[in-house]
Computed example of a mutant assay.
Amino acid sequence: MKAHDILSRQEIRELMTKNNLRATWIIASCWAWVIAAMTLVAIWPNVVTIILAVLIIGGRQLSFAILMHDCGHNSLFKSTKLNQFMGTWLAAAPVFSDMQTYSRQHSIHHKDVGTSKDPDLVNYSGYPITKPSMVRKVLRDLIGLTALKYWFYILETRLQGNKSMISNIALCRALAVNLVLFLGCYLLNVPWLYWVWFLAYNTTYFLFLRIRHVGEHAAVPNPLSKDMFENTRTTLASWWERILVCPVYVNYHIEHHLLPSVPPYNLRQMHKWLVSRNAYANTPLPSGYIAMLRTVVI
């Protein structure tokens, strides 16, 4: 099923219209959440506020990865240069990612989703899995082993001179941005506060990233189908899930695969139109990520 089979040309044109103000608001609000969480810990430093901050910041770090993805599609801002700048410095660099490398690989994902050519296949092909296996994955994320594996991967590729998911230039940008974050905390006389950010990155970020990958393509009705209503999943999310595991409209993933150039802030409207046309008649729409996880755990 194609977008033109369901939506009119006028509707598609409206959905693909970009809005710089809305795009700027999304990026600014994500950073505002980070600042608010770190401020909370700075004012009331205790176990409860640190746990809350690590959860919130991990969710916002995931939002930066998603915004990098949107800027890579050139779908967030009207200007290509603005997408490149914002996606590189305010989205990719803070979470040690490389937008250019990611975008090249992600274009293959859209073309070959579910096949052996899909670079993202490793993130979802093993599902469904058993409950003990899922528990082990979650624990590895939360105690930092998944992040440690990523750090070793970066170190190994640098020592061996191999190509990596993050180039040397992108790694330098990431280190520079994180140094700015640390210096900001230092100048405010709370240098230890940076480690709350770093703790979130090494724990909840990788957990939420895993849940995002699982939610998008794991254990779908027909992973080898060319129809995104069969090889991709949209999950209906609650308010707290939008804060943590599916920020900036990433839960509308069928919609994204149907029209990858649609800005994220228009995906909800697209979903409403698809529902009104009965496009999901034969497609499961889990009511929340807990319900989604139940479908991928046996």
Rank of each mutant, 00 (worst) to 15 (best):
K2F: 10
I6D: 02
L7Y: 07
Q10K: 12
E11I: 12
M16I: 11
L21F: 10
R22S: 08
I26V: 14
I26K: 07
S29L: 04
S29I: 07
A32W: 12
A36L: 13
M38S: 12
M38Y: 01
L40G: 04
P45Q: 04
N46I: 06
V47E: 09
I51D: 05
L52Q: 03
I56H: 02
L62T: 10
S63M: 08
F64R: 06
I66W: 04
M68L: 13
M68D: 06
H69G: 05
G72F: 10
G72M: 09
S75Y: 09
F77R: 07
K81T: 10
K81E: 10
M86C: 15
A91K: 05
A93D: 01
V95L: 02
S97F: 07
M99F: 00
M99L: 14
T101N: 06
S103L: 03
H106N: 13
H110N: 08
H110C: 01
G114L: 14
K117Q: 11
P119T: 09
P119H: 09
V122W: 15
V122T: 14
N123W: 05
K131H: 10
V135A: 12
R140P: 01
L142F: 11
I143S: 04
L145M: 14
Y150K: 04
W151Q: 09
W151V: 11
W151T: 09
F152P: 00
L155I: 04
T157K: 15
R158M: 05
L159R: 14
G161R: 02
K163C: 00
K163Q: 11
S164A: 13
I166T: 13
I166D: 00
S167N: 01
N168P: 01
R173Y: 12
A174E: 00
A176I: 06
A176Q: 00
N178M: 02
N178K: 11
N178R: 12
V180P: 00
F182K: 02
L183W: 07
L183D: 00
G184C: 11
G184K: 05
C185A: 08
C185E: 05
V190D: 02
V190T: 13
P191D: 10
W195D: 05
N202I: 08
T204Q: 05
Y205P: 02
F206L: 09
L209S: 12
I211Y: 08
I211F: 09
R212H: 15
V214S: 03
G215I: 11
H217M: 07
A219S: 15
A219F: 11
N222L: 06
P223K: 10
K226H: 11
D227C: 06
T232Q: 08
L236T: 08
L236V: 13
A237M: 11
R242M: 15
I243M: 14
V245S: 05
V245Y: 04
C246W: 02
C246S: 15
V250W: 01
Y252H: 14
Y252P: 04
H253R: 05
E255V: 05
L258C: 06
L259K: 05
P260A: 03
S261A: 14
V262Y: 03
P264C: 12
N266M: 14
N266H: 15
Q269W: 14
Q269C: 04
Q269D: 11
H271P: 08
L274S: 04
S276E: 15
S276C: 02
R277E: 13
A279T: 03
N282V: 07
P284I: 06
S287P: 02
I290G: 08
I290Y: 10
R294Y: 01
R294I: 07
R294A: 09
R294G: 09
T295C: 04
V296H: 01
I298W: 03
